[in-house]
Structure formats: C-alpha cells, structure tokens
Nucleic acid binder design. Structure first.
Length: 355
DNA sequence: CGTTTTTGACCGAGA
DNA sequence: ATCTCGGTCAAAAAC
C-alpha cells in the first residue's frame, strides 16, 4: 500500500499544476477545472487504478484536497463498473460501519461537476479496491447493489431521496447556499454538538463525534468527512427521546436552504414522520445501515440521469436496532446537506456555521 | 459574554 | 500484563 501511496502522490502532482488555468474565477471553477479535466485523463491513466485514495489523509491535507479529489474522481472513473455488478452477487451483509467511503467524496465532486453519473459506479468499485477487506467489500457491494437495483420503497428512503433531490437542486441554486442556521441544527432537524474528533485508524478521514444537544438526549453520531467536507460516513447511536426542535422558520427565504433539504424530508411533520421511519427503518434496513444511494439520485436528477448513486453508508449504533432509526433519517438528510455545503467550501463553513 | 469547536489527554475494551 | 484503538472529557480557542 505504501508504495501505491507513493505512486499516488506522484500522480497527484500533475493536478496541482493544473491551475494553469489562470482564469480561475472562483473556487468552484477551480474545482471544476481539475475535475473536468480528469475524466479524459482518467481513462488514460489506468495507472491510477493502482493509486488508491485510500491513503489516510491527515488534516493538514486541506491544501491537498483538490489534488486528492481529483485522484478520487479519477480512480473512480477508471474503475470499471463491471466489478460493481459483480458485487451485486455478494451477500448483503452488513457490517461495521467501518469508515471507508471514498465514494462520497467522489460523488460529491462528481455532482458538482456534473459528470457524476460517469463515475459513481466506479467510485464504489474504487472503494472496494481500496478496501480489500471482505466486510468492506460486502458493504460496498451491498450498497452498489442496492443502488443499482431498486431498493424497496422505504419511506425513510424516499424521504431521503426527496430531500436529497431538493438539496441537490438547491445546490444548483446559488440561493441554496445560505448557510442554514448554522451547522448545529443539522438539517436532520436535531441540534448537534461536536465533542470530539479523531483520526480513526481504518478510515481515511477524521471522525467527528457529535452529541445531540437536547438536554437528556443520549443520541450521538459519528461523522467522517473528507476534506472537502463531504460526508463519508455517518453512524448514529442511540435514539432521540425528544421531538425535533422546530426550526425557527422555513416558510420564507431561509426556508429554501434549510427547509428544502431537511424539511423536504418531512421535518415539518417530523415527529410523525420520524416515528414512522423508526418502525420502517428498523424493519427494512435492519435498522443499521442506510444507504444513501439516493444521493446519487440527487446527483442524477441534477446532472444527468443516471441512477447510480454514491452511497453514503449510514449506520446506526446497536442501540438503534430498536428504534434509534429516527436518527438515521434525520441524520441522513442533514448530513447530506452539510456535505453539500461543505462542497461549497469546507473551509468557510465552520465560520459561516458559527453564528 | 456565551456557546461551540478544537484538540490533546484520558479511559476502557479488546487482542 | 501490555499494547492498540475507539470513544469521551475538558481546557483553550474561536466565533
């Protein structure tokens, strides 16, 4: 692996140099540049295959984000979707929420670029490649399979999808960006307080630990984000013992940003919906892992129309088995939005979010 | 000024 | 008994 990393680095170098596009008007352009450029190269860069973004990336990499992203996208693109299909055959087993989802990042990037469809499948595969472990593969496979196949109509899922779609739409819409009520009130409708962050060994990205800010609420969640702020993985633990805090407003302007993404999910009606979800999720998804393939959907709608979604594995802690699922639904939508925002500019987010 | 985030240290579980 | 690792705590910093 190490060797590959080295290679990867080498490969990555070219990316930074890209900025030759002196005409970068904005950061977004910057992103697009590498991304757009990558596809073509990607194919040619079969070598990239060897390059595995899996490499652990440390915080300081912020500057490297673009390069890495590019890599990711490339890798994703390079990988053939065939493998993905293969993965379908694999048993649907789930697994520890081991962090490992590069795809997210890739997906997000793709989404931004609009090339999304081209790579998301690959992305999954890339993930596999990156993670040889069975569990992971299975996990991924499941995801991919789910995404490719149509998942059972889980309500939660639907909502998620909708929220994502909306979110995606919002993304496209410049208006969307308005930092939604800060980051705390996650779009999932709950308020979270970060109480820790750590670089987990197996995961590529740092893992953040959040607690629900509600007084007696034991719910916690772990979120792994790529540098670009995209959520690689979310794991919920526990169950909210309180209704969602009602966002101050979502009827008018602000509503667009927050409301759509999260609310579209049904937050306005939240509690009710949540409960529904709880039961639903528990049964349907085992109450453990929720694929966010739907994201892909979002991307799809946004970009081209391709069903393959990036997946974001969301896992709930064992506790959720009983009913913590509500968290899931919440978190999912919320996190996505966050991720999206992150896409816009992770660096700035923290600032914006805070007051 | 109050709240949240950051981040290193600490703790417990598992190997 | 020791080591590793994930999760949490809590002081300091940032907003």
């Amino acid at each position: 692996m190490e060797i590959k990393e080295a290679e990867r680095i080498v490969v990555a170098k070219p990316v930074p140099s890209r900025p030759t596009r002196s005409t970068f008007g904005s950061f977004s352009e910057l992103l697009e540049g590498p991304v757009n450029a990558s596809p073509p190269n990607v194919c040619s860069e079969t070598a990239v295959m060897a390059i595995r973004p899996k490499t652990v990336r440390f915080k300081p990499l912020v500057n490297c984000a673009l390069p890495n992203q590019t890599e990711l996208s490339r890798t994703a693109v390079c990988n053939s979707s065939d493998d993905v299909s293969k993965s379908d055959n694999k048993p649907t087993v789930i697994y520890k929420p081991l962090a490992r989802l590069v795809s997210r990042t890739t997906v997000s990037l793709l989404e931004n670029m609009g090339n999304f469809d081209t790579s998301h499948q690959h992305t999954q595969q890339s993930v596999e490649a990156q993670h040889p472990s069975q569990d992971k593969q299975n996990f991924i496979s499941q995801i991919s399979s789910n995404s490719n196949q149509n998942l059972p109509p889980l309500k939660e899922k639907d909502q998620t999808i909708e929220s994502f779609r909306e979110a995606s739409q919002n993304l496209e819409d410049p208006k969307y960006f308005p930092p939604v009520a800060g980051d705390r009130p996650s779009y999932d409708g709950y308020n979270w307080r970060k109480y820790g962050q750590k670089q987990v060994k197996g995961s590529e990205y740092p893992r953040s630990y959040y607690k629900c800010t509600h007084p007696n609420c034991p719910v916690k969640k772990k979120v792994e984000r790529s540098f670009d702020g995209q959520i690689a993985e979310i794991v919920y633990k526990g169950e909210h013992n309180h209704p969602k805090p009602q966002p101050p407003k979502r009827s008018s302007s602000a509503t667009q940003g927050l409301g759509l993404g999260a609310d579209g999910t049904g937050q306005d009606t939240n509690n009710t919906v949540w409960n529904t979800h709880l039961s639903e999720i528990n049964e349907g998804s085992d109450g453990r892992v929720v694929n966010q393939n739907d994201l892909g959907v979002v991307a799809d709608s946004t970009c081209q129309a391709k069903p393959l979604p990036p997946f974001i594995p969301i896992s709930t802690g064992a506790n959720n088995t009983d009913g913590g699922t509500s968290d899931n639904s919440c978190g999912i939508s919320g996190e996505f939005d966050e991720g999206r925002k992150a896409l816009e500019g992770e660096d700035e987010q923290p600032r914006k979010r805070r007051r």
